[in-house]
């Protein structure tokens, strides 16, 4: 066991982690930030995506001890300061980009990382970028649309709502 300290959503947080403790388990169990999810054990699904030092990371592929001293942001820290949904979150609600909500935290965190690097992605760029995020509910149509809308692009031509 070692003591691990990291800045999570702007606040310094400390907890205990074994060498084998994954960042995702540390966030969920030690810090009680259960918005980050675990959907697989082969690093394929992206339900666990968080940002570590500004980069999108699958929190199931990183040990908690490796994140010692890092800046971590999770879904719990994404809303605006007044508690309202941020642009990406709001676009997901507006365009029905979620159903069961289980993949959603990872999708929102991935979308944020994408839009930071590529503020106006094409539909194909979004689809390619999401290759590490699996959603079983939506068929991706409305997720892609939400991300396009969040980037300020006109989605009225994208079929159906």
């Amino acid at each position: 066991m070692a003591t691990v300290t990291m800045t999570v959503n702007g606040k310094s947080r400390t907890g205990e982690a074994e060498g084998r403790t994954l960042l995702v388990s540390f966030l969920r169990e030690e810090l009680n930030l259960t918005g980050t999810h675990v959907g697989c054990d082969t690093s394929q699904c992206g339900a666990c995506v968080v940002h570590v030092n500004g980069e999108a990371v699958k929190a199931c592929t990183m040990f908690a001890q490796e994140a010692d001293g890092a800046e971590v942001s999770t879904i719990e820290g994404q809303a605006n300061a007044d508690g309202s949904l941020n642009t990406i979150q709001q676009a997901f609600q507006d365009h029905h980009g979620l159903q069961c909500g289980f993949c959603t935290p990872g999708m929102v965190m991935s979308a944020a990382a994408l839009l930071k690097d590529n503020p106006k992605p094409s539909e194909q760029e979004i689809r390619n970028y999401l290759q590490g995020n699996i959603c079983r509910c939506t068929g991706y149509h409305n997720i892609v649309k939400a991300i396009m809308a969040a980037s300020g692009q006109d989605v009225s031509a994208v079929a159906a709502e």
């Binding site: 609600q93 979620l98 909500g101």
Partner: peptide, 23 residues
């Protein structure tokens, strides 16, 4: 009406309560 989903707010902010979140 295509009413926007009220449940989305908790899912989009990490405040959903799934069974694994129960300890």
């Amino acid at each position: 009406a295509s009413t926007k989903r009220r449940e989305d707010v908790r899912f989009l902010t990490g405040k959903g309560k799934y069974t694994d979140d129960i300890n």
